[in-house]
């Protein structure tokens, strides 16, 4: 009963949004929620069905009393079958462990992404206009500049390809 009450208190939409679940975890949770809803709906439908049978009415209307007696005997001797749900419980526990593991993995991933995004945001906010940057700052931000420089210098080439086309040339020769 306590488990049922706890299950009723679960806010599924909040779980997905507050934990920021995505991908396999979210899909598994959605499937689990669907199973839960289906089971609850089925239970509701079944509990609404009548469980008593008016055998006296059948006896008065049917001529064949033997059949009614037989059915009544079977009905009173009927016991609902009990199932061992331990296996399912174990499966649910395993699923829970897996889900928690997945959620934690997702959380660490999201945290890392958030940190990266915050870093990018501060970078954008504190960025200066291009004309205020020094060559050293640009080279520090883009290491390929130094690599290209050393490559060109080692080849003995002092002109940068594409520079003249973009910025023109003041050379008279």
């Amino acid at each position: 009963m306590a488990a049922r009450n706890a299950a009723l208190k679960v806010d599924w939409a909040k779980i997905t949004t507050s934990l920021g679940l995505r991908g396999q975890t979210a899909a598994s949770l959605q499937a689990f929620k669907k199973r839960n809803d289906d089971a609850r709906r089925k239970l509701q439908q079944l509990s609404e069905l009548p469980t008593t049978v008016d055998f006296a009415a059948y006896r008065s209307t049917l001529k064949n009393q033997a059949i009614v007696n037989e059915i009544e005997k079977r009905f009173t001797s009927f016991k609902p079958a009990t199932y061992d749900v331990n296996r399912q419980l174990k499966a649910i526990e395993a699923f829970e462990v897996e889900a928690i593991k997945n959620a934690e993995a997702t959380k660490t991933k999201v945290d890392l992404e958030l940190k990266d995004l915050e870093k990018t945001l501060t970078n954008i906010e504190t960025a200066r206009p291009f004309d205020e940057l020094t060559v050293d700052e640009v080279a520090a931000a883009e290491p390929s500049i130094d690599e290209k420089t050393s490559k060109l210098v080692s080849k003995g080439r002092w002109s940068v390809p594409g520079y003249k086309e973009r910025f023109g040339d003041l050379s008279v020769l």
Binding site: F130, L133, V138, K148, Y163
Partner: peptide, 22 residues
Amino acid sequence: SKYILPRFVRLFLSRTFISKLS
């Protein structure tokens, strides 16, 4: 070749890079 021209090459390269960015 050791000190002055490499600085110019570096400057030209950063200028090209920045103009592409802008």
